[in-house]
């Protein structure tokens, strides 16, 4: 597996806090190609700490590509150059010796920077809190096999539900639109029989919240799908559009 170390020079965005002005700082490191991208940053941080300097703030948790915590824009691409992986799954073997690497935080008005590469993505949760659920209480539900669901539909719902909520779609979109994220959740429930009772109201309240939070509009460039670590399809956006238009036009609410 392991080959010779590679040398890379990095330009990393440093910003002390939400209101301060940030800038790029330069770092150089020699690292094993088997190390992950975040392990490379760990090494830099260890080095900084041992020199009594403030380490670079960046977030990660599971480092298996499922929790959605990590997210860096690497050379202009959210989660870096390899498709369908999260930043934590990116390995240094994908970079060549001497490659310059620019690391920036996800940038969007709705994702304010907390520090360095850490951004606040709580807007996503706010959207989910307005409708990203099926309104049932614990207990008193029918048997799990009471409603058969075709394998294809379950599979499509799973495709949409695979979203890890990392925000790469927003980061990639030239309009910082959250449509892919929102549509993935809307689609999951729109596809399943359990989601039908609230289908129309759900899409309306989630879209309203999304707009309120300052995400941009979708202009169908499909950059979101290209950068999504889980390959969530833009057909979910089409489904959400359809549902939203239908709900707005046909629902009884005149509000």
């Amino acid at each position: 597996m392991s080959g010779k170390n590679i040398n890379v020079s990095l330009k990393i965005w440093r910003q002390d806090g939400p209101k301060t002005v940030g800038s790029f700082a330069e770092y150089k490191i020699s690292i094993s190609p088997d190390a992950s991208f975040l392990e490379m940053l760990d090494e830099i941080n260890n080095d900084l700490e041992s020199k009594n300097q403030i380490p670079i703030a960046f977030e990660s948790d599971c480092r298996e590509g499922i929790c959605g915590t990590c997210g860096l824009v690497i050379n202009g691409q959210p989660h870096g150059p390899i498709p369908k992986i999260a930043t934590c799954q990116l390995h240094m073997r994908n970079f060549k010796d001497g490659d310059p690497i620019w690391i920036e935080p996800f940038r969007a008005k709705a994702f304010p920077i907390i520090k360095d590469l850490v951004v606040d993505r709580s807007g996503f949760d706010e959207i989910l809190q307005t409708g990203g659920y099926i309104s049932i209480n614990t207990g008193g539900v029918p048997d799990a096999n009471a409603i058969p669901i075709s394998k294809d539909i379950a599979s499509l719902a799973m495709d949409a539900a695979a979203c890890i909520g990392c925000g790469a779609c927003v980061a990639a979109c030239k309009n910082a639109s959250a449509m892919l994220f929102v549509s993935a959740k809307v689609s999951q429930y729109a596809l399943l029989p359990q989601g039908q009772p609230e289908r129309s109201q759900r899409v309306q309240s989630m879209v309203a919240k999304m707009d309120e939070l300052g995400f941009g509009s979708c202009t169908n460039t499909y950059a979101c799908e290209a950068e999504c670590p889980k390959g969530i399809s833009v057909t979910n956006i089409a489904r959400m559009n359809r549902d939203y238009i239908k709900a707005s036009v046909t629902s009884n609410s005149v509000e």
């Binding site: 539900v141 029918p142 799990a144 719902a157 799973m158 539900a161 429930y189 399943l192 359990q194 989601g195």
Partner: peptide, 10 residues
């Protein structure tokens, strides 16, 4: 049962 009712796509 609970999870299926919540829309977990098993």
């Amino acid at each position: 049962d609970q999870c299926v009712a919540q829309g977990v796509p098993f």
